[in-house]
Design a protein around this nucleic acid. Structure first.
Lengths: 258, 258
DNA sequence: ATGCTAGTTTCATTCAATGAAACAATTAGT
DNA sequence: ACTAATTGTTTCATTGAATGAAACTAGCAT
């Protein structure tokens, strides 16, 4: 009673997740906290527009139309399109995972991922979110964000998942400074698997950092050697962006999500 | 006055396109045929949820949140995730463009594209739509669609863009039959560039064709030789899908879009 | 100064949205 | 085979979210 429809719509879309790619009407109505009749009405409209699709079993899944629209996001597929060839170079040269991520609010969003065939594929999902304080790409993005955004993150939850270990904001400041003037980040973690990540920033024409590129390899990989390559390729991407006039602007300090 | 909000929302999202990645409020209100005040109200909600973002210049672009949600589409990124490694194999082996597409209504939607570095990159865009009657992947998808859907397409507009040449439905029936029992399609076109495309179907566990894989190369490329490779890799993808239990179900004959 | 365009706020009016209840169609339990 | 439970769907009187014209502000060019 008395609530913006759009909020309801997004609560419905929000209900889907990596492990819930297909949902029944009732589970949707529960998750979105809506009466069944209302949920049905909205979901029907979404299906009509192709934002959702209905499976043979009557369940709902995210539809192709949404991907079609989403692929127009300048900071998403727009960026990806120009970066992909370079990422492939890096992928072949290193034989390791290659990641491309951008910052959204207080997290990083994975825009593209090329996976090493042999390596454990339990890595982040394209479209998924990564913490800024515990990953290579995250640190690069964080180090190059505005001062007050950095504070927000540092004052937030700095737990390392899944270890559960908590790092203090002090422990993070030094690495961040290091990242800022070395122009790259090297992060090693033991969990979920022993891995090293080498990341470097991608710049917009105006010098702002708009994305981070990284190679993720099993521990023991020569990070120092890789660093040069990653930085070089990240620069190449930056240059390609300038040429293709694929502008990637965004808000200063964003508005609140829910 | 008196129109479902969701229709308006989608008219707004629809307003964006490959060549209109960022739009001002007024152009949105014009394209979506809405009063400025109404457009603003809706657009604000969309920004609040991250479906749209506002650039420094005050223009609107598709937001990352949409990509995040869209990446959960089973027929989109879901499929892509399992197919990508195999596509890369094909990409390296052939050195040519590699495409992955699924059918949506009367068109094909490009789910993934690996581009040859040297080749002309004026190829279809990821998330974009391709005609079923004039492309390799399109023919494969069409040939394996239901009889009445095929009729719908054959009775529709069979113009070849950008040539402008029109093919008759009769000319198409023979190739379609051929595609159906040879298990692959070879299509050569002179425009926009002289190219040959070799495509093969990807199967779901139940034997249904859920996607098409193809190699697109400059004319002169040995299509017959490539055919074996494309079919083999398409099968490998099919098998991988079966294992990863990434179900890709969908509607029989879909509902009308607008 | 003056006009012009783009974005934003306000508010009385109204129609799209609402959800409880009844119904149909499956599925599970006994 | 019958009943109970669950899920999906339709209906419709009620109501508040959505509406958009008009007024306002801000930037920019003339």
């Amino acid at each position: 009673m008395g609530e913006p429809v759009l909020d309801r719509v997004f609560r419905i879309l929000q209900a889907f997740g990596p492990s819930d790619r297909s949902l029944t009407l009732t589970s949707l109505s529960v998750r979105a906290d809506l009466p069944k009749s209302s949920a049905l009405r909205i979901v029907r409209k979404l299906v009509q527009w192709g934002a959702l699709e209905r499976t043979a079993r009557g369940e709902f899944v995210i539809g192709l139309r949404l991907l079609e629209i989403a692929s127009l996001a300048p900071r998403g597929h727009g960026l990806r399109a120009t970066a992909l060839p370079y990422m492939e170079d890096l992928h072949h040269a290193s034989g390791q995972h290659v990641l491309l991520a951008v910052r959204d609010e207080l997290e990083a969003v994975l825009v593209e991922r090329l996976s090493a065939r042999q390596a454990g594929n339990v890595l982040y999902r394209v479209g998924g979110r990564l913490p800024l304080h515990a990953t290579g790409v995250g640190l690069v993005l964080l180090a190059n964000a505005s001062a007050d955004l950095q504070e927000q993150v540092l004052e937030g939850d700095l737990t390392l998942t899944p270890e559960g270990e908590r790092i203090s904001s002090l422990e993070l400041r030094a690495p961040l400074a290091e990242v800022r003037h070395s122009g790259s980040a090297v992060v090693s973690r033991q969990y979920p698997e022993p891995m090293t990540s080498v990341a470097a920033p991608v710049f917009a024409p105006d010098g702002a950092v708009i994305a981070a590129l990284s190679v993720v390899a099993p521990l023991g990989f020569d990070a120092t050697a890789a660093k040069v390559g990653v930085i070089a390729v990240a620069r190449a991407v930056s240059r390609a962006i300038t040429q293709s006039t694929t502008v990637e602007p965004h808000d200063g300090v964003g508005q609140q999500h829910h």
